[in-house]
């Protein structure tokens, strides 16, 4: 898959010596790319450099082949940006604001784009209300609507779901997933479950330096040192649990409430693939298996491992 965003050895050093240091990563076309890092790691700076709102001290940022140092406006044309605080004029109505943005970004048929956006983002009912009087959830949706109104190829979202209630956050994530069909999305977030749900690629940064970048699946394999299998079911006798624990170097946790039908959750750990052996053993011993799954290493494990190491 070709890359639409390329960071090549980018540094951005502020007067206090902090900033980005030799950052290199790429974002594939059509991907939802998560940018992870602890507070102050440089996620927002990375996004601002990408959008051309901050000039890089050295290195090269390319967006769809346009170098941001020489062809900034062409590069910016391809980007829809939602900063951490949505850029809103609080004394404008929702429709007025979206029309202003559509006209400013020279969208074709701005009134039609506004109509589409209002419908798509469920803003029709509040279109004539002042933005200043709306809730944080609505403001975030308007922020996302302004980023997408000129139909950019790339969306850059800085912590889009932070501080939202679960329903609004869920709706926003559904919208992000929907726009992935024809757009490349770069999003920064602290919420690792969002990354797991949305992202196919991640870049982890710490203290302005690149810690890791790549496809989530590949990184999961890279960072998984052993295979973990979770089995939930009825294990007839306690000797059986002991036997399984010894055979598969596992750990068992009793989860049942009734003494008559004891239910156990069993974790087997191995560097080899033990799935078929474990399943065979359980069938031979007449265990009633309710759930059998291999636990994959997710962004949380990768993030914690990388940030702890650094």
């Amino acid at each position: 898959m070709s890359s639409v965003i390329k960071f090549n050895n980018v540094s951005k050093i502020f007067s206090n010596g902090q900033g980005l240091k030799h950052l290199s990563f790429e974002v594939s076309q059509g991907a939802i790319h998560g940018l992870l890092g602890a507070n102050g790691a440089g996620k927002s700076t990375t996004m601002r450099v990408l959008c051309g709102l901050l000039a890089a001290t050295s290195g090269e940022v390319t967006i769809l082949g346009h170098d941001t140092s020489t062809e900034l406006k062409q590069a910016q044309k391809a980007i829809g940006y939602l900063p951490e605080n949505p850029p809103l004029y609080l004394n404008m109505t929702v429709a007025e604001y979206l029309l202003f943005v559509a006209r400013l970004f020279a969208s074709e048929k701005p009134a039609k784009r506004v109509e589409w956006t209002l419908e798509e983002f469920g803003l029709g009912e509040v279109q004539n209300r002042l933005i200043g009087n709306l809730s944080k959830g609505f403001r975030q949706r308007i922020g996302l609507a302004q980023a997408i109104i000129h139909d950019p190829q790339i969306l850059v979202l800085d912590e889009p779901t932070v501080g939202l209630d679960p329903t609004v956050s869920y709706n926003l994530k559904q919208l992000i997933k929907k726009f992935q069909v024809d757009k490349t999305i770069l999003l920064s977030t602290h919420i690792l479950s969002d990354v797991e749900e949305l992202c196919s690629e991640i870049t982890v940064i710490g203290n302005g330096r690149l810690l890791e970048s790549g496809r989530l699946q590949e990184l999961g394999k890279k960072y998984s040192t052993k295979q973990i299998i979770e089995v939930t079911g009825h294990f007839p006798a306690s000797q059986l649990i002991e036997q399984a624990t010894a055979l598969f170097s596992g750990e068992a946790v009793e989860t049942s409430r009734s003494q008559e039908t004891p239910e156990w959750r069993f974790y087997a750990q191995s560097q080899e693939d033990i799935r078929s052996d474990l399943l065979k053993f359980l069938i031979e011993k007449n265990c009633e298996v309710k759930e059998f799954k291999a636990i994959e290493v997710g962004p949380e494990d990768i993030f914690l491992k990388l940030t702890q190491e650094n």
Binding site: L53, K77, Y81, P86, L88, V101
Partner: peptide, 13 residues
Amino acid sequence: KNSTIDLLMMSPA
């Protein structure tokens, strides 16, 4: 204060 300067700077203006 409202980050709208980012919106204006990102626009063709």
